[in-house]
């Protein structure tokens, strides 16, 4: 495990592509794992369902979470992440197109580390991705890993 993983929870393929492109352009070289909905996000994080075989010792350095997700919405995903001690301390940045106050407040209430509105202008999207990568992946000191020990 050379580079920490970024977990991108995003159902929109365009946004996924643009996000990855923005990271690349900003020289963020971390592996980006993409999951398509809330259920899959939790499966991946807790090694259940289709990700039952995943090595749970590997946990993301940062979770980018869209709020409007199929199957299980982002706020519920956030609540469950914070409810499980294995993932409670992971940095979660909510990234969404909503500017609704209610969403912002709820996100922070549920323990989001940051709230980022996806700008329409790609340049500003790039700036956002860049500063995200800079802060969360480089400057921020992570909480000590408390996830399950490697099985092998």
């Amino acid at each position: 495990m050379t580079q920490p993983i970024i977990l991108l929870v995003e159902d929109n393929a365009d946004d996924e592509l643009l996000t990855v492109r923005a990271f690349k352009k900003s020289n963020v070289a971390n592996e980006v794992v993409v999951v398509r909905d809330g259920v899959e996000a939790l499966d991946w994080l807790f090694g259940t369902g289709e990700h039952a075989a995943r090595d749970l010792s590997v946990q993301p350095q940062l979770i980018l979470l869209d709020l409007k997700l199929p199957r299980l919405d982002g706020l519920e995903v956030l609540r469950r992440i914070r409810a499980d001690e294995r993932t409670a301390l992971l940095p979660v940045v909510v990234m969404t197109s909503s500017k609704e106050e209610e969403d912002i407040i709820k996100s922070y209430e549920l323990g989001a580390n940051s709230y980022l509105r996806k700008p329409v202008e790609f340049e500003r999207f790039m700036e956002a991705a860049k500063s995200l990568g800079m802060y969360w992946l480089v400057l921020n000191t992570r909480a000590p890993h408390r996830g399950p020990s490697p099985t092998k």
Binding site: D14, L18, R21, T96, S97, S98, E100, P119, V120
Partner: peptide, 22 residues
């Protein structure tokens, strides 16, 4: 509807702008 507008209408615009830039 407002919520949907906020999310759903902006996403395609983001794609239009983003991919135009790309």
């Amino acid at each position: 509807f407002s919520y949907s507008v906020a999310h759903d209408l902006r996403a395609p615009l983001r794609s239009i702008d983003g991919f135009s830039q790309a």
